[in-house]
Amino acid sequence: MTPLLLSEEKRDALRELVNIGMGTAAAALAAALGTFVELTSPGLEVTDRGSVAKQLDTGAWRNSEIEAVRQPFFGAFTGESVMLFDRPAHAELAGMVGYGPESAVVEQQEVLLDVANVVIGACVNGIAESLAELVSFAPPTRLGTRADVRAFLSREAVAWQQGLIVNVDFKLEARSFLSRVLVFLPEPSMLRIDQALSRLLDGLAAG
């Protein structure tokens, strides 16, 4: 395993940036959907590819049915983000935006695409904007279920070796779901984030 990029101090800083982004996203989602939404990110890890796959087979995710959405981004940082939802999230989220509990599968997928677009946007933009960098997004698409995620993670010719795992606690009114945002960056982008974080932290220290 290559040594992890980003020092502990920088990871802390990144965690803060993501949380600020999540706060903005939650407020905006709540306003857009007319319901109480809380998004918090209790954890952010920098890890390599193999560990991501392993994590999906442990803990609360081990037995849950996964539905995943992917969204590429490009610009100052290039990468792909994957948002994972556990099973109860589908129906609940669909219900939340006004589709009935019996809503069609495609409608439920559409809701997940919308929510992932907002949360991934908040997460990646939260980082990019704080670092005064510009990032654009391609449309989100459905990645699929657990098997598809596994295939995605094990693909041989992928550029990224290290990624960010952002755990997101998703609370809607009294209910909460498991969801997780994975941000995968190829090494040059990771280095760019590292440099931008250096500038940010130096600026803070100087100021």
């Binding site: 996203a25 905006a28 989602l29 306003a31 857009a32 495609v106 409608e107 997928q109 559409e110 695409l113 919308d114 677009n117 907002v118 946007g121 933009n125 997004f137 449309p139 989100p140 698409t141 459905r142």
Partner: peptide, 14 residues
């Protein structure tokens, strides 16, 4: 309007 964020739809769902 609220999120100031790009949004997308795909023919796959709609």
């Amino acid at each position: 309007f609220l999120l100031k964020n790009f949004a997308f739809t795909s023919w796959r769902q709609r």
